[in-house]
Amino acid sequence: MSQSEQRQERQCISCGINISGMSAAKFKCPDCGHMIYRCATCRKQSNLYECPDCGFRGP
């Protein structure tokens, strides 16, 4: 997968918006290491997220 394709697929795990080109957090799931992306709004509001691979939940 090319870097431009990966960039297009980045979506906030909480609200689902496309975050390419936005100020967003990128981190690995604490349990399984799956890459998680969150938009600034969901981070600020502490919206919950769930890892699609292992089901880990966090704020």
Rank of each mutant, 00 (worst) to 15 (best):
I17M: 10
Q3Y: 01
P30K: 06
C15T: 03
K26S: 12
C42T: 07
D53G: 04
C39E: 02
D53H: 09
F56E: 01
C29N: 07
R10N: 03
G33V: 04
C42E: 02
T41H: 04
N47Q: 14
R43V: 14
C32T: 03
Q8K: 15
R10S: 02
G55C: 02
Q8L: 12
C54N: 11
P59L: 08
S2L: 12
M1H: 08
F27Q: 10
C15K: 01
R38G: 00
P59Y: 04
K28Y: 01
I13T: 03
G58V: 01
H34K: 06
G58I: 02
Q11K: 14
S23V: 15
Q3D: 06
P52N: 13
R38A: 04
R38N: 01
E9V: 00
Q45D: 13
T41M: 08
F56L: 12
K26T: 06
D53E: 14
E5A: 03
G16P: 08
E50Y: 01
S14H: 01
S4C: 01
S23G: 00
E9M: 09
E5H: 09
S23R: 10
I19H: 02
P52M: 01
R57F: 05
G58Y: 03
E50F: 01
M1W: 02
P30Q: 05
K26C: 12
